[in-house]
Amino acid sequence: MDLKAFNQLSCGLYLISSAYEGKESGCIVNTVQQVTAEPAQLAVTINKNSYTGELIAQSGMFEATVLSKDVALEQIGRFGFQSGRDTEKFKGISCLRDEEGIPYVKEGMTARFFCRVTGQMDVGTHRIFVGKVEQAQCMEGESMTYAYYHQVKKGGTPKEAPSYQGEEKGQPAQKGWRCKICGYVFEGEALPPDFVCPICKKGPEYMEPLAG
């Protein structure tokens, strides 16, 4: 099976956030879609190990914002490659809060939706949350597709993401290094000793070899 076929499915990138009893977190996903127009409902798929997903299950609410092409990859690194259990995701960055106190980022986003969970489904390693949209707002910019993120931004995919493919048996392994902070992929067998990630500015000690 050619897993690259899944890359042809059109999707964007989204920042999902939630809060519960003073705890808050956010994560980057590419698995948001509208499921009905009346009532307006969105569905999002999140890894069961995600702290953000845990807060959604507890609070029954989430914010979904759409990433623009101009979003800083440092934000993707923070929300996509770090755990909310170890990092205060919203500390030190400009964010707003909705009427329920859930934080969301406006800069680098093209739209936001506040959703109240109406149902969920266990799909193995992940959980699908369906939420009724109670607020929707347009912002500025052009939305970023997942293909643009990989082809132009050169971003990587976290191992807990629904779209993470890993290495398939029988397929030639990609040679290179992935930044553990922001997911940037350096293509090549040898990593220069003075390498600095062009996205998050971390050194070679933060790079890990791609499985091969």
Rank of each mutant, 00 (worst) to 15 (best):
F113L: 11
A147W: 00
H126M: 06
G119N: 15
E134S: 13
T125A: 12
E134Q: 14
G141R: 09
F114L: 13
T125M: 13
K159N: 08
G166Q: 09
G141Y: 04
M144V: 04
F114T: 13
T125G: 09
G131A: 09
A136H: 11
S143I: 00
A136N: 06
K153G: 04
K153D: 01
K159I: 13
C115G: 11
Y146G: 02
Q135E: 15
A147T: 04
Q135C: 09
M144Q: 05
M139K: 10
Q165W: 07
Y164E: 05
Y146V: 02
K154M: 07
Q165C: 07
V117G: 10
A136I: 14
G155D: 00
H150N: 05
E167G: 08
K154F: 01
A147P: 00
T110K: 06
E142C: 03
G166V: 05
V117I: 15
M109E: 12
C138T: 13
V152Y: 02
Q135M: 15
Y164T: 04
C115R: 07
V130M: 12
Y149A: 10
E134W: 02
V123E: 11
F129D: 05
R127N: 08
M109T: 09
F113A: 15
V152E: 10
V152G: 02
M144Y: 00
P162I: 14
Q171E: 14
D122P: 07
Y149R: 05
V130L: 12
A111T: 03
P162A: 11
G141P: 04
T145H: 00
G166W: 04
G156D: 05
H126S: 10
M144K: 03
G131Q: 07
F113K: 10
G170T: 06
E168A: 14
G155M: 03
E134M: 15
R112L: 11
K154S: 06
T110S: 10
K169E: 12
V152D: 07
F113I: 05
A136S: 13
G141F: 00
P172W: 04
A136W: 05
K153F: 02
G155R: 02
K169I: 09
G124Y: 00
E134P: 01
F113G: 08
E140D: 12
Q171I: 10
R112W: 06
E160G: 03
T118Y: 03
P172A: 14
K153T: 01
G155V: 03
G156P: 04
A161L: 04
T157N: 08
V133I: 14
Q151S: 10
A161C: 05
F113D: 08
F129W: 05
K154G: 00
I128D: 02
M109D: 03
K154V: 01
V133A: 14
E167K: 13
E134N: 11
A111P: 04
R116N: 09
R127V: 14
M109F: 01
S143R: 12
T157V: 15
V152K: 14
Y164C: 05
Q171L: 10
G119V: 02
T110D: 01
S163N: 12
I128F: 00
G124R: 11
G170W: 08
